[in-house]
Design a protein around this nucleic acid. Structure first.
Length: 275
DNA sequence: CCTTGAACCTGCGGGC
DNA sequence: TGCCCGCAGGTTCAAG
């Protein structure tokens, strides 16, 4: 489910509900995610205390007081929920953290594209899943100069490039389309032809920030750790709106597959030549 | 190097 | 009602 806003919503929800809690027991009901859950997970986490809940790109990082870090990626369909012990477990509830006070933290992931790993915090910068990520979109490193330099040599259309986690992290299929609409750039425009880099950066940040403020987007069944869905889907300007009227000009929203993913845009508000 | 397409897996909605 | 097809918020790997 998750692009940056959904992961950030999940992070904040977990921080509010389980930070400083002791993990009494860990149960893994299914290990075969995108990569196998480490066999030592249960033993290594039992008896530790959760001291931090961080996010890097689309990864959640739970710090425990043994000095290890629990890394979680939600894939396409992963989610966390915090429940009381009496609640029944559901199909696709793969990992359960039993916390002091009768709370359960449940990782649920029907498609199993998610990832769960455990590593010593000192090795975080060298972790294979984290080492090659691009800058955070809200960081100073995601600058006009940086974006210019990195779009210059790319020959592909801008939209799939925005989803490249080596260029900038956190932008996925929804927010790529939404960000490009906001700054009027046509998604088919070649990356090296983009000229308004500052506007693009501002549009990405505004889109992500607005989505975070709305608790992310709930398409099928995404729920944040609070148990409530986000509502940014009601603010989509183009995503999932093929043939519907553009809110700005009234013309029908276009849809086309780029690099295997559906792209949505307004041909009038995002003309090829405008940029 | 860069880019594209297929693969991973399950569920849901639409069309017949 | 039931079946089949296409599609879904991500990432990785092989191949061109």
């Amino acid at each position: 489910m998750p692009e940056l806003p959904e992961v950030e919503t999940t992070r904040a929800g977990l921080e509010n509900t389980i930070k400083n809690f002791l993990i009494q027991k860990v149960e893994v009901r299914r290990r075969d995610l995108r990569q196998p859950i480490p066999v030592r997970l249960e033993g290594a986490l039992a008896g530790t205390r959760i001291v931090g809940v961080r996010r890097r790109a689309k990864y959640l990082l739970l710090d425990v007081d043994s000095g290890e870090v629990l890394l979680v990626h939600l894939g396409m369909s992963g989610s966390f929920s915090v429940r009381i012990q009496e609640d029944a477990l559901l199909k696709h509830d793969h990992v359960i953290l039993y916390l002091e006070g009768g709370l359960r933290v449940v990782f649920h992931d029907p498609r199993r594209f998610g990832v769960i790993d455990l590593f010593a915090s000192a090795r975080e910068h060298a972790h294979p899943l984290l080492a090659h990520l691009g800058p955070e979109p809200f960081s100073d490193a995601f600058s006009v100069d940086y974006l210019k330099e990195n779009l210059r040599r790319r020959k592909t259309a801008i939209k799939p490039v925005l989803m490249d986690q080596q260029l900038v992290v956190g932008v996925g299929n929804i927010y790529a389309s939404e960000s490009l609409f906001l700054c009027g750039i046509n998604p088919q425009l070649q990356s090296d032809k983009v000229v308004n880099h500052g506007e693009l950066i501002a549009a990405i940040r505004a889109t992500l920030q607005s989505a975070i403020a709305s608790g992310g987007s709930t398409l099928r069944d995404f729920l944040g750790a609070s148990g409530k869905g986000g509502y940014f889907q009601h603010q989509f300007r183009v995503y999932n709106r093929a043939a519907e009227a553009c809110f700005t000009c009234g013309k029908p929203i276009q849809i086309q597959v780029q690099s295997g993913r559906s792209t949505y845009w307004c041909a009038t508000c995002q003309p090829i030549r405008k940029n």
